[in-house]
Design a binder for these strands. Structure first.
Length: 836
RNA sequence: GCCCCCGUAGCCCAACUGGCAGAGGCAGCCGACUUAAAAUCGGCACAGUGCGGGUUCAAAUCCCGCCGGGGGCACCA
């Protein structure tokens, strides 16, 4: 007699025990290594965005890695050699700030966090290839940032220029345009100001057209939202450059406009107050104007981005006492300087057409400048729109040209074509394209980043550090003050800064800035292909084998920044001949965020859910399953709305199926119950398509149905010994291995298998089992359901029509009215339409 | 201001892309098992798809207009 404690029948699902059972097995077998050179399986590269090591993993990581793992494990099951690597984006401000706050070494802090995250990832059963780990703060990684930098420098894609830059007064560092969110520093929410500095840039704008047009090729496989955001960000606009002669200046100056059709409506010109052009025009004007301008320029400089971006901000400016000549009619236009014109867009100067541009109208009204209407604009009913002078609202839409000389009577499109052609002939205009996108400012005045590999030599200028002197390693923090102070902490490392010029051997100084950490993440996906390579950033042949990435998984927070930069790097590396593709991420999945009670989790809100506590309470599998089952992957999950306890309950229910199966491994399923087999095979066949379209929540629901059907078969149907029950339990284990790897392995092993279910492959779908004996055909009369018929799935249209019309309930519903038409959609639907 | 996405049972979500509104789950209720509870098993109930029009034999699905929620861009000429 068996005691209740040891009886298999009474064995209980104990996730703690199961986790402890499988962790050492996986650690030993390393089932997800992908570097076996003899592996002949086709390849898939699945990549989760690598984490920043700012602490232990949190709920957001748990969602991202759960979903990425479903995809990765699916392709492994499907028979692919899947590359699913992980690393750490380990340079950046948080480590440095922690170092400043607690006096610890940023490297030590970073490595400790990485160790903790790695342990958590292993517990979380992430199917990573642990032989390919990379960390961007290690010299063996950032060396290749420097190497790539020098290549970009050689090609003119990395350059230094003085410019007004975004400046965070709190972090005391410059920020890329992309890191300024609504006028605030992305990191610390301090209002951003402008500062004139000489900084390093990557010439992203060289690829503006390709970055935009390349989005077309991603239309099917990237979220349309991300494509729209990138398109918006690049902001291509087509228009014309028009040359305006300036009185008292030799060369004319170009302005950019998208509306050359409104040239006759120009009544003044505006130059950006902070542009070189304004300064130049000012030089030849009177002292009073100079003084007024100087005061204005000073005031503008002190304004924060927030103030500058405010829409209610009244228009301000200074008349420069200079005049431009309108090329279409020879009119004298006063030239003003204002901050509403941007120095770094177009040519830093505009023609102002107040009647048909709201900003120009606001300015004209503030300064008492004339307004001339040159478009006859109508509303939807054909009534003329109110005069901008009276209404204060510029008419910015299409319209028929008036008061416009040669182009009178034309519509917008024709007028643009005509006037540009006319001016082109005269040599005073040309078609032109502009972008909202700016070059990428990569200099950072901080310690914890990649040193810029440039030596400044009085004799030779900017000299890139030669390959054999890379990496330029960070000096030790000892003796350095890492606190932000507007200058890089590296400048204080005198021994490090003072060097010799690689070209002439004379005394020279190292560049003391470090690179934006987005440089690190712009090519890390290539480093994963050969992470230990010591004579190049990545192996070209490995790149041919694996890249580009088949499936990228990560948060939508990186929709612009990281993805745009990575695309730029990919195109630049392609043009260097190192890779043969231009888009790094063939497909992209954006997972949503995990929230709590309707808002993002944060310590300050007091709604932080601890991942570790959740894992302790419900188990890894239940948390992973909850992440997959909560809804579509791209939707946010509110943790208050989902039930990890329910997930755990379901896993226990599934696990008990394996426990209850009494047949031996290898029994022929064909001898099993056909009805259960039909459910099993339908589940299987649907699951493939559902996983591939990322409908993980539906897959889980289907597996739940299969579990329910199998339970029923065991308890009240064919019984636990039926081969179909074993088949069903095995399919449950296989499919669950995508979501709940511990439970799945334990089931697989209970079912008598020696191998790992994660590597066992997907069973074949038996199409014969998908065919149903009969289907329910719904019969409608005038769209209302009146009867249901059990029919053969092969019934023809004629048969169905006759059957439907013969039905007594249908005839009653028709009430004797003559049939107009009968819509038949075999085998499921007949709709009888009658004359009424 | 411009552009985009989403509104289906109390809650999270399905619905072959125009064809029976309901797959799965949570919460709820009832029953079985139990001395009792937990666990387990079985069952039940709940919306006519945000609102108003339109197209169609047929609309959650397509079109138009509102309402509500979310997101992106925004002095880019």
């Amino acid at each position: 007699m068996t005691s209740p404690e040891t009886s298999l029948d009474d064995a209980r699902y104990d996730f703690h025990m199961i986790e402890q059972r499988w962790q050492p097995v996986w650690a030993d077998k390393q089932p997800f290594r992908s570097c076996d050179v003899d592996d002949e399986r086709p390849t898939k590269y699945v990549l989760d965005m690598f984490p920043y090591p700012s602490g232990d993993l949190h709920m957001g990581h748990a969602e991202a890695y759960a979903l990425g793992d479903v995809i990765s494990r699916y392709w492994t099951l499907k028979g692919f050699n899947v590359l699913h690597p992980i690393g750490w984006d380990s340079f950046g401000l948080p480590a440095e700030n922690a170092a400043i706050k607690r006096g610890v070494d940023p490297a030590g802090w970073t490595e400790a966090n990485i160790a903790q995250q790695r342990t958590s990832m292993e517990r979380y059963a992430c199917s990573f290839d642990w032989d390919r780990v990379l960390m961007t703060h290690r010299p063996e990684y950032y060396r290749w940032n420097q190497w790539i930098f020098t290549r970009l420098f050689d090609r003119g894609l990395a350059y230094r220029k003085p410019s007004l830059v975004n400046w965070c007064p709190f972090d005391q560092t410059v920020l890329a345009n992309e890191q300024v969110v609504a006028g605030l520093c992305e990191r610390c929410d301090t209002p951003v100001t402008k500062k004139k500095l000489t900084q390093w840039y990557f010439k992203v704008t060289d690829y503006a057209d390709e970055l935009l047009d390349g989005l077309e090729t991603l239309r099917e496989t990237w979220p349309s939202k991300v494509i729209a955001m990138q398109r918006n960000w690049i902001g291509r606009s087509r228009g014309a450059d028009v040359q305006f002669v300036i009185e008292g200046r030799k060369a004319p100056i170009p302005i950019y406009t998208t509306r050359p059709d409104t040239l006759f409506g120009a009544t003044f010109m505006v130059v950006a107050v902070d542009s070189d052009l304004a300064a130049e025009l000012l030089a030849d004007t009177d002292e009073a104007t100079k003084a007024e301008f100087a005061a204005y320029a000073e005031k503008v400089k002190g304004d924060t981005e927030i103030e500058r971006l405010s829409t209610e901000r009244p228009k301000t400016g200074v008349f420069l006492s200079r005049y431009a000549i309108n090329p279409v009619n020879g009119e004298r236009l006063p030239i003003w300087a204002s901050d509403y014109v941007l120095a770094d867009y177009g040519h830093g100067a505009i023609m102002a057409v107040p009647a048909h541009d709201q900003r120009d109208l606001d300015f004209a009204r503030a300064m008492g400048l004339p307004v001339r209407t040159v478009l006859d604009c109508r509303d939807d009913d054909g009534n003329p729109l109110p005069d901008p002078v009276e209404s204060g609202v510029a008419t910015v839409g299409d319209g028929t040209l008036i008061n416009s000389g040669s182009i009178n009577g034309l519509d917008k499109a024709d007028a643009i074509t005509a006037i540009v052609a006319e001016l082109e002939k005269a040599g005073t205009a040309s078609a032109s394209v502009n972008y909202r996108l700016r070059d990428w400012l990569i200099s950072r005045q901080r310690y914890w980043g990649t040193p810029i590999p440039i030596v400044h030599c009085d004799a030779c200028g900017e000299v890139p550090v030669p390959d054999d002197q890379l990496p330029v390693t960070l000096p030790p923090t000892a003796g350095l003050d890492l606190k932000p102070k507007g200058q890089s902490p590296l400048a204080a490392a005198t021994d490090w800064v003072n060097t010799t010029c690689p070209t002439c051997g004379g005394a020279a100084l190292r560049d003391t800035d470090t690179m934006d950490t987005f440089v690190d993440s712009s090519w890390y996906f290539l480093r994963f292909l050969s992470p230990h390579k010591s004579d190049g950033p990545f192996d070209v042949d490995e790149a041919k084998k694996w890249a580009p990435i088949d499936q990228y998984v990560g948060g939508v927070t990186h929709a612009i920044l990281h993805l745009l930069y990575a695309r730029f790097f990919t195109k630049a590396l392609r043009d260097m001949g190192m890779i043969d593709f231009g888009e790094p991420f063939t497909a992209l999945l954006n997972q949503g965020m995990v929230q709590m009670d309707g808002s993002a989790m944060s310590k300050s809100r007091g709604n932080l859910v601890s991942l570790a506590a959740q894992l302790d309470e419900f188990g890894v599998d239940a948390i992973r399953l909850t992440m997959s089952f909560a809804g579509p992957p791209e939707d946010d999950i509110d943790w208050a709305d989902v039930s990890p306890a329910g997930s755990a309950k379901f896993l226990a229910r599934a696990w008990r199926l394996a426990r209850d199966v009494t047949s031996e491994p290898g029994v022929d399923p064909a001898e099993g119950d056909r009805d259960l087999r039909a459910v099993t095979h339908r589940t299987l066949s649907e699951a493939f398509e559902l996983v591939e379209s990322f409908r993980f929540n539906v897959v889980v629901a289907r597996v739940m149905e299969l579990v329910n059907a199998t339970r029923k078969a065991i308890d009240t149907g064919v019984g636990a010994a039926d081969p179909a029950v074993r088949e069903a339990a095995e399919v449950v284990a296989t499919l669950l291995s995508l979501f709940a790897p511990y439970c799945a392995e334990d089931m697989w092993s209970m079912l008598g298998h020696e191998d790992l279910v994660a590597l066992s492959g997907l069973p074949e779908v038996d199409d014969a089992l998908l065919v149903q004996d009969s289907v329910t055909c719904v019969v409608q009369v005038m769209g209302k359901v009146r009867d249901r018929l059990e029919v053969s799935p092969n019934a023809t249209e004629d048969e169905l029509r006759d059957l439907a019309l013969a039905s007594p309930t249908v005839q009653r519903a028709m009430g004797g009215a003559p049939v107009r038409t009968v819509i038949v959609r075999p085998p499921g639907l007949v709709n009888v339409v009658v004359n009424t």
